[in-house]
Amino acid sequence: MTATLTRADVVAAASSKRRRRVPSWIAVVPLLVFVAVAFGVPAVAMLNGAFTVKNQTTGATSYSTANLTESLKGAYLTALIGSVKLSALAGALGTLLGLPLAQVVVTSRFRALREAVLTASGVLANFGGVPLAFAFVATLGNAGVLTTHLGLKDKGWDLYSFWGLVLVYLYFLIPLMVLTITPALEGLRTQWREAAQNNGATGVQYWRHVALPVLAPSLLGGFVLLFGSAFAAYATAAAMVGSSIPLITLQIADAISGNVLVGQENVALAMSLDMVLVAGLVMAVYLPLQRRSARWLDA
């Protein structure tokens, strides 16, 4: 029997051929254009400004590393080191406190509790800036509700200090760690614990020799993520401590507002480049750890 092609069949076949000729990457072009405009243009402007030096006598501009050199001296270097210390400490504490909380959520038999904690973590992980600073000032500031009620000021408590800022950062870093480490905890096989128990291992031995080695890449990756989040935070610290604690983000804000010496107008861009380099180093550590953890847990 000979098949008869109708006009509709011919049109459909031609349309299918045209669709196959269109490359699949065309659909990604709008996203690439948006990324180039939103991230590429500011990055190029920052690089150009960081290496541009203006001669105050002639007004001529030239490319030099003077701004980068200046950004790694004096108060600027102190602020960079202060941000690294604050971020490292807050990230480490957030990792240590977030892990057991996430484990309780994963092993809980109450589904409502699990969903409530994960939902709250998603909200609190993104709750920062001036509202967070105001909430802590009203609660634990010099005239805060808990400070006055518990007499914390007489006991040496000071919210507007390094440790006070660490406490505030933990408010959003611990929930972020819970969200980050929960999938890894869910990937731990029940058979691994059963095998360890059958061989006479205690709960501590199981965590020491089995669970923690498997979770190590995820834990380190979570720490790196928390470090980056704390390192880039600005509004909370600016609203709470101002310039009393040296932080690189606060120094950049001062430099942008004109609080620099003559001829150092682009030092703020150089400090921003320093932050980008630190963030790039953080991501260079985080991505391999994430891939390694995924291989372990998917095995």
Rank of each mutant, 00 (worst) to 15 (best):
Met1Ser: 12
Thr4His: 11
Ala12Val: 11
Ala12Ser: 08
Ala14Val: 05
Arg18Lys: 09
Pro23Asp: 00
Leu32Ala: 14
Phe34Met: 09
Phe34Gln: 04
Val37Arg: 07
Ala38Asp: 08
Ala43Asp: 05
Asn48Val: 14
Gly49Asn: 12
Ala50Arg: 01
Thr58Lys: 03
Ser62Cys: 08
Tyr63Glu: 04
Asn67Ser: 00
Thr69Ala: 07
Leu72Phe: 13
Tyr76Gly: 04
Ala79His: 06
Leu80Arg: 15
Ile81Gln: 13
Ser83Met: 02
Val84Gly: 07
Leu86Cys: 03
Ala92Trp: 11
Ala92Glu: 11
Leu99Ile: 15
Leu99Pro: 14
Pro100Cys: 15
Val104Ile: 15
Phe110Leu: 15
Ala112Phe: 13
Arg114Pro: 13
Ala116Gly: 10
Ala120Gln: 11
Ser121Pro: 00
Asn126Lys: 01
Gly128Glu: 03
Gly129Ala: 03
Pro131Tyr: 04
Phe136Val: 09
Phe136Leu: 15
Ala138Tyr: 03
Ala138Asn: 05
Ala138Ser: 09
Thr147Ser: 09
Thr148Gln: 15
Trp157Glu: 01
Asp158Gly: 01
Leu165Lys: 10
Tyr169Gly: 08
Tyr171Asp: 07
Leu173Gly: 08
Ile174His: 12
Pro175Trp: 01
Ile181Cys: 09
Pro183Asp: 05
Leu188Phe: 06
Gly200Met: 10
Gln205Val: 14
Gln205Asp: 12
Tyr206Gln: 06
Arg208Phe: 10
His209Asp: 11
Gly222Trp: 04
Phe223Ser: 00
Phe227His: 00
Ala232Ser: 11
Ala233Val: 08
Ile248Tyr: 03
Thr249Asp: 03
Ala255Glu: 05
Ala255Phe: 09
Leu261Gly: 04
Asn266Ile: 01
Asn266Gln: 09
Met275Trp: 00
Gly280Ser: 01
Tyr286Pro: 01
